[in-house]
């Protein structure tokens, strides 16, 4: 969500400290995990808004700068880069998406939340979750279409 490991770890610390301070405000109206995810999403959005004034990646700029690395990432026969490098590259690829797409993909794909949990976390309807998730996936695949070679994709199966 935050593109790189260092920022993510710092944000994770901030979120736990924030949750600790706000613990008396938790009334049990939702699951504790949903409450914590809500704090997390709000905090990440704050960080992203501040950072947007700093650096974002357009798709073209990212392809120009990291095209070879992205090819390697999606190539099944290439030597795998370190986990940290891949993580940072994945963050850059996701940063080409709008914030709300990035957020919903992270909640679903990285955190494994069910649609209902996502709806509670983002305070929106179930239909909104389905629609946004579908659009986010389509756009991500569209952005990466030149890197998704058939022979590599089908090896995933």
């Amino acid at each position: 969500m935050l593109q790189n490991h260092t920022d993510a770890e710092e944000a994770a610390q901030d979120i736990f400290v924030k949750a600790y301070r706000n613990l008396p405000k938790f009334k049990g109206n939702s699951a504790f995990s949903t409450w914590l995810y809500r704090i997390t999403t709000n905090h990440c959005l704050d960080v992203l808004r501040k950072r947007n004034r700093r650096k974002t990646y357009s798709l073209d700029a990212l392809v120009e700068e990291e095209g070879d690395s992205i090819h390697r990432l999606f190539s099944s026969d290439a030597v795998a880069a370190s986990q940290m490098e891949n993580r940072d590259l994945a963050g850059k690829i996701l940063s080409t998406l709008p914030e709300d797409y990035r957020m919903i993909l992270t909640l679903r794909e990285a955190d494994g939340l069910e649609y209902q949990e996502i709806a509670q976390t983002l305070d929106c309807s179930l239909d909104a979750v389905k629609g946004r998730l579908s659009r986010a996936r389509r756009q991500l695949q569209e952005n990466l279409r030149h890197f998704l070679r058939e022979k590599d994709v089908y090896k995933e199966e």
Binding site: N86, E109, A110, R137, Q141, E156
Partner: peptide, 14 residues
């Protein structure tokens, strides 16, 4: 298949 490939690469289990 593309969706699964993207998911596996961008959201690996950490």
């Amino acid at each position: 298949a593309q969706g699964k490939a993207v998911s596996a690469r961008l959201f690996p289990v950490h």
